[in-house]
Nucleic acid binder design. Structure first.
Lengths: 240, 240
DNA sequence: CGCAATATTGAGTTGGTTCAAACTACGTGG
DNA sequence: CCACGTAGTTTGAACCAACTCAATATTGCG
């Protein structure tokens, strides 16, 4: 998931992403389970699951992009994560989903029954540890996002967000300075705890100051990575 | 941990708290491990661990209270959780701690070596699942806090906070309307993403409106629980 | 009692929001 | 292929909740 990219680089341990799995070799039992799982395709805007649904399956994104969020009755919404190919969804939902998952674009996922997973975990302790590690990363990501949203200014939040996407690109062997945004301004706003207007204005300011370029609203080019990092500040530092 | 109390009541599944363990009986293997672990005592303000420290142990609070937080170089701080007796600390730290844990008052914890825990988990799949479930609750709590901090007003945040403490009391068989605050205003502020002044003013407003009473800054009495819930709004609702 | 740490209250400022109006991208059907 | 319509984005101006700075009041410890 994206939010994981918010985590300090130092703790960027192996995760069950598609790339890493192929290198990890035989130890990756969660990936093995997914190999024999069924496929499901989602149209843009279609939901994979909703908050309150029984958590029957765990999913892995094969292609596309999803937005994971929570809402309040009055419409306030918090996006807690974005899911990219290789990311695992639906873990940590005990009994029923606490979040909803909506595809941003055409998306394909693999579906694994929770009952199967639990059975496997009972027989294979390695799998249990793997689930534990995956969740550990999600927890760290959630706390990093909490920190970002709670303590940083609008510019810092957006800069942190872009840098997280940039690092994700770097990790996947894609251009770190050319970022595609599959999600809407609204998704970004609800992720960072801002309004769409503030997101838009902040993008404009970064463009005016020649830190980034924007084309067609969805392609962001980082022109001055150094300065973007200065703006993001924090650096996920570790201190007392 | 406290933040767990932010989770919707519907998903308040069994957790390895002291009370629940004794009822759970023989299935609780994590508790068994702690029974043979060593004790450590902390003075007020003393740190159990700091961000960046190697994560050598996992802890369970026996008595007292701790504040779990992260900081930025410039001093901005985010409290991610409060730990009470029965709570387990230090899980989800892969390699090194990403947070610091500081005792608010005189505190005693049990210490369990991570290496021991990993060994046990390799032999006992139940333990792995238990760790997984514990982390699931922490993840849900972190997301609930994210939502609270990101989307709610100062009054809503403080009301949610007090209700979470109230529910915690109810769960432990203590008076739900008499809340002791072991942490400082500064801890509360950094937990809720506010300043101490705003926390103080909001407490005062709640007292003026006869929703709560405050004695000696640390004892809060809820006089109008219904109204406090109205103020907190949200109710950890579940919706698309 | 007296001091140092913590908490409260007051007044002025501001970053981000709200409300409202233009603009852009892009899919659809003529 | 272009005109049209709609959803999404950008920009502008006024506003306000929470912040900052500063002074006062508790609390509790030596």
């Amino acid at each position: 998931m994206l939010a994981t990219a918010f985590a300090p680089d130092g703790v960027d341990l192996p995760r069950p992403s598609i790339e890493r799995r192929s290198r990890a070799g035989s130890t990756d039992t969660l990936a093995d389970r997914f190999e024999v799982s069924s496929l499901r395709s989602l149209a843009p805007k279609e939901h994979l699951f909703c908050a309150g649904d029984p958590a029957t399956h765990v999913y892995r994104v094969e292609s596309g992009h999803l937005c994971i969020y929570r809402t309040m009755m009055d419409g306030r919404r918090q996006v807690v994560d974005f899911a990219y190919p290789g990311d695992v969804l639906g873990l940590g939902a005990l009994g029923e989903h606490g979040t909803s998952a909506q595809a941003s674009v055409r998306t394909v996922v693999r579906c694994l029954a929770v009952s199967t997973l639990v059975d496997s975990a009972r027989r294979d302790p390695k799998l249990g540890m793997q689930l534990y590690e995956t969740l550990s990363h999600e927890l760290q990501a959630a706390r990093e996002l909490l920190f970002t949203v709670s303590q940083k200014t609008a510019s810092e939040r957006l800069a942190s967000f872009l840098l997280a996407l940039s690092r994700r690109n770097a990790r996947r062997g894609e251009k770190p300075n050319e970022i595609v945004l599959p999600m809407t301004r609204s998704d970004i706003a609800d992720f960072l705890g801002l309004t769409i207007e503030t997101v838009s204005r902040t993008f404009t300011r970064l463009r005016t100051e020649k830190v980034i370029d924007i084309e067609q609203c969805i392609l962001v080019t980082i022109r001055d990575p150094r300065r973007l990092e200065d703006i993001a500040e924090s650096k996920g530092d570790i201190n007392v």
